[in-house]
Design a protein around this nucleic acid. Structure first.
Length: 182
DNA sequence: TTAACGTTTTCTTATATAGCCTGATACA
DNA sequence: TGTATCAGGCTATATAAGAAAACGTTAA
């Protein structure tokens, strides 16, 4: 069972926003709008909680969530804040779409990455230890990327659902098992 | 050669991971 | 002053968003 460490989602309010005014009006513990640094408005509903990046177009990104439920509750909290300012009329269609899930896992033992890179096939692997200590594996036909480290720790990213991340890890384990057997 | 326009890249955020490098601090 | 230790930043990965910069191409 993979452990979710970060979920990124996006949504759209469907209205143009004045970000400076919005940042001033929101009743939340943290907002930051510094267009000379970045053109998005940063919002946190909870101190050190998930970050919401809001754009002038009304589109927004939620990042830093540790579960799908947290993405939903953060989105609902944000929409409630927006609705209280009269910026839009609350609509059940205003949902959030999960775009990326980052998970961690642990292989049963440490692994030699040079051997693994050869066994998995160079067309699906990138491994340049002098540049980055992890091996990058792209499982065929699975929408996720896996980082494998020599101590057996694994990071799965790019998946839009946790089941995709689990499938990707399962495929990695299967490939490693078949390499051991052969 | 220069201007104008179109396309591409970079930036920012969150998060795990590990190795390397640099700078700061502490102690002999 | 020299050495040791520690902290922090950078490297890579994915993803959304859109402004701005950096390109490349075309025409005058």
């Amino acid at each position: 069972m993979v452990t979710i460490v970060n979920v990124v989602g996006s949504g759209d309010l469907g209205v143009e926003l004045e970000l400076q005014t919005l940042g001033d009006d929101l009743d939340v513990p943290f907002t930051e709008y510094n267009p000379s640094n970045y053109h998005g408005l940063y919002v946190r509903l909870v101190e050190d909680g998930p970050l919401i990046t809001v754009y002038r177009s009304g589109k927004y990104i939620i990042s830093g969530c540790s579960s799908f439920q947290e993405v939903e509750t953060t989105n609902e909290g944000f929409l409630t804040q927006i609705a209280s300012l009269g910026i839009y009329n609350s609509s059940p269609d205003l949902g959030v779409t999960v775009q990326n899930v980052v998970c961690t896992e642990q292989l049963s033992s440490a692994i030699d990455l040079n051997t693994l890179s050869i066994g998995l096939g160079l067309e699906t692997v990138e491994y340049e230890p002098e540049q980055f200590p992890g091996l990058v594996y792209r499982p065929p036909e699975i929408g996720a990327v896996i980082l494998v480290f020599a101590n057996g720790k694994v990071v799965i990213t790019g998946a839009s659902d946790v089941t995709i991340a689990e499938d990707a890890f399962a495929q990695l384990q299967s490939r490693i098992q078949s390499l051991i057997e052969n």
